[in-house]
Amino acid sequence: MTCKEAERLVMPYIRDELTDEELREFLEHLETCPDCREELEIYFTVEAGIRQLESETGNYNIKGALEAALEHSSQRLQAIRLIKIAKYAVSTLSITALIITVLLQCRIWLQLGLL
Rank of each mutant, 00 (worst) to 15 (best):
T101Y: 14
Q105M: 11
L112C: 07
E25K: 12
E31A: 11
E21T: 05
A69C: 02
D35V: 04
T92C: 10
L103H: 07
N59V: 07
F44H: 04
I85Y: 01
A68W: 06
L66G: 00
K4P: 04
I83S: 08
T19F: 02
L66V: 09
Q105I: 10
I42L: 11
V90L: 14
A48W: 05
H72R: 14
P12F: 00
V90P: 01
T32F: 08
E25S: 13
T57M: 07
L82V: 08
I83C: 06
A6V: 02
S91P: 02
S55V: 09
I14M: 04
F26G: 00
N59T: 03
T19N: 05
L30H: 00
Q78T: 12
P34A: 06
L82H: 15
A79T: 12
R76L: 13
D20W: 12
Q111T: 07
M1H: 09
E31R: 07
I50V: 14
F44K: 05
T32N: 12
S74I: 10
Q75I: 08
P12I: 00
Q78F: 02
S55F: 07
E71N: 09
R107E: 04
P34H: 05
D20L: 13
G49A: 04
T45W: 06
S55Y: 05
L114D: 01
I95T: 13
L53V: 14
A68L: 12
H29I: 03
L40T: 11
L112N: 10
K84E: 09
G64H: 02
G113T: 09
A89Q: 09
R51I: 00
E56G: 01
Q111P: 01
E71I: 03
I62G: 00
Y88G: 15
Q52A: 14
E41G: 04
E25V: 05
R81Y: 13
E38C: 01
V10E: 05
R51D: 08
Q111C: 08
L70D: 01
Q75E: 14
I42E: 15
S73A: 13
I50L: 12
L115H: 01
L23F: 01
C33V: 03
T57H: 15
V10W: 04
K84Y: 03
A65D: 08
